[in-house]
């Protein structure tokens, strides 16, 4: 099953007994057919995933869409990008970027970057969103961005990304959180964070045309 692009801000899902959908709560715009919605708590599979989610704040209120019908999804006029996962490398993105995905895809929480737990906690405390969600499996994911997400292809080179503008990535990529010298002055309109994501390897990084998170 795949999400059908209705326009740059809305996707349509054909939901059936064999193709339920998980979506962000509040993202359902409307539906036809016999469709029900069920709140889903927590995230990921198993205790590990739940603990990680609770600690990181990466848990996002989701809901299952079940039954048979057509459902429109969108969220606050944000742009939607549909990505097809081939079962290889997972999609890494922040939980609140997830508009909807095939229910057979699995999610887990991961800390993005190096520096160990201490930095992870401080990152979470400062709201830098260094905890991310991994989406595994084969299927479709609809991802939210402010102003649309543009892909940057990496073939061994490195790219620096503003954490506020970072949407997600797919591929064999390593991510470092760099506190860049001299960066403090120039980044963060109000955020005051002198961080930059340093991403290198082979894959695709998605970046939005805005430093606004939602």
């Amino acid at each position: 099953m795949s999400f059908e692009t209705v326009n740059s801000k809305v996707v349509r899902a054909h939901v059936s007994a064999s193709t339920p959908v998980l979506a962000r709560r509040g993202a359902m715009l409307g539906y036809s057919g016999q469709v029900t919605f069920r709140p889903v708590h927590g995230q990921g599979r198993g205790i590990g995933g739940m603990v990680g989610a609770a600690m990181s704040g990466e848990s996002n209120a989701m809901m299952a869409t079940e039954g048979t019908g057509q459902v429109l999804y969108g969220y606050k006029g944000l742009h939607v990008t549909v990505l097809e996962l081939d079962g290889g490398a997972p999609l890494v993105c922040e939980a609140d970027r997830l508009l909807a995905h095939d229910a057979n895809l699995q999610t887990s929480v991961q800390f993005l970057g190096s520096g160990g737990m201490k930095q992870a906690i401080s990152g979470a405390m400062t709201g830098q969103g260094l905890f991310t969600t991994n989406v595994h499996g084969r299927g479709s994911v609809a991802v939210l961005s402010h102003g649309g997400a543009f892909p940057l292809q990496l073939n061994g080179q490195q790219v620096g990304v503003d954490p506020q503008a970072y949407v997600g990535h797919v591929g064999q990529l390593s991510v470092d959180l760099a506190a860049k010298v001299g960066f403090r002055d120039v980044v963060g309109r109000g955020s005051g964070e002198a961080f930059q994501l340093r991403i290198s390897g082979h894959g695709t990084v998605y970046v939005q045309a805005s430093e606004q998170k939602f």
Binding site: N7, S8, T81, V82, G148, A149, F150
Partner: peptide
């Protein structure tokens, strides 16, 4: 297709 990504119907 300025973003080289998804087509943007309606535009």
């Amino acid at each position: 297709n300025p973003y080289g990504g998804q087509p943007q119907p309606g535009y």
